[in-house]
Design a binder for these strands. Structure first.
Lengths: 180, 180
DNA sequence: ATATTTGCAAAGAGTTTGCATCATA
DNA sequence: TATGATGCAAACTCTTTGCAAATAT
């Protein structure tokens, strides 16, 4: 693995690599096996039960692309004829958050979405106000600002969220941005 | 007024000025008169009605300190024996957002709050995960990152949100941060 | 065996909406 | 006086909870 900075990214100009991950040589199948293994260890340690439903939900998440919410996950599992209740989805998402196999992001007032977090770079988001497209970027200076603020305020920072909102490069969205 | 950078702040080290504002020589009363005037102009231009309720809500907001939500505003107006319905509060907040006299901030999944936006510096937030204390800071580099991302992605950025989460300098909160 | 997990339906919080009444322009 | 604003209650969305049945340890 390359040497990375504290933010987990080499340079702002490595944008083409942003959608990759630390272990991009891994197939999706490899990655699913790895997260299942991590989940097993976590459940053992916490003395929680290793139920088939929990592993199926984890697998469904890691098979999907991009961001998702509880309801989308529920629907996609039902579409695969996997019987599961919403209550269990919500419950399992909490467990997966706790063991950091997923991360919750807030992209707007009513736009809270989850993302896979195993094997992916730290990153921030660009959100198109028109088409809701979400893009990812990484800028190491965010981490530098974080360190400075941390020492200046004597505030122990554990996480951050940086969202830029605007109109994306999509032609329709650009046109709308000129109207305003 | 001093010359400010694009982010509306002079330097990261001007932290003591962060809670001030561009027109800090104005009294609260002056400021309320000014926002009422701006609101009048906006309502005229949009051909909306200049009702007493709308002005009372605006006044209530500018008389209060810090961040607030719809319900807190409702309660504080009722406590002053001002009869108003929740529906009207929500309605008026939408109007005030549209004319940019207030701004909505998302500090966490279920923590969406409004803040006054007339006469205040652009800033970002530090949020304590323990006591929910919200602090403000300003770092001009956020704006520099924004400009770079904007030109790199050809994405017209109109707004941003940068939150740092952690444990604040409060003794209890610091102790909790060491436990984890 | 027994304590946790699950599924269902009902409850809950926060916000929005429909409609009759009221008030601004 | 005519259209927009308001207040109330009902509806709505998303999430959580209570409880009985199922299942992992």
């Amino acid at each position: 693995m390359d040497i990375l900075d504290g933010a987990g990214c080499r340079s702002i100009l490595n944008v083409k690599q942003l959608h990759g991950n630390y272990e991009s040589y891994m197939t999706i199948k490899d990655k699913i096996n790895r997260v299942k293994q991590l989940f097993t260890e976590y459940l053992d340690q916490k003395e929680l039960r290793k139920t088939p439903v929990r592993f199926s939900i984890l697998e469904e998440i890691y098979q999907q692309e991009g961001h998702f919410d509880a309801d989308a996950l529920y629907v996609s599992m039902r579409n695969r004829n996997f019987k599961v209740s919403r209550a269990t989805i919500y419950n399992t998402l909490e467990v997966l958050l706790d063991c950091q196999l997923i991360k919750r992001r807030q992209f707007g007032e009513n736009l809270g979405l989850y993302e896979k977090s195993y094997g992916f770079k730290q990153h921030d988001h660009l959100i198109c106000a028109d088409c809701n497209r979400i893009m990812e970027f990484c800028d190491p200076r965010v981490h530098i600002i974080q360190q400075m603020i941390e020492s200046f305020y004597n505030f122990k920072i554990t996480d951050h969220s940086l969202n830029f909102y605007g109109n994306c490069m999509n032609k329709d969205c650009q046109e709308k941005s000129n109207v305003h």
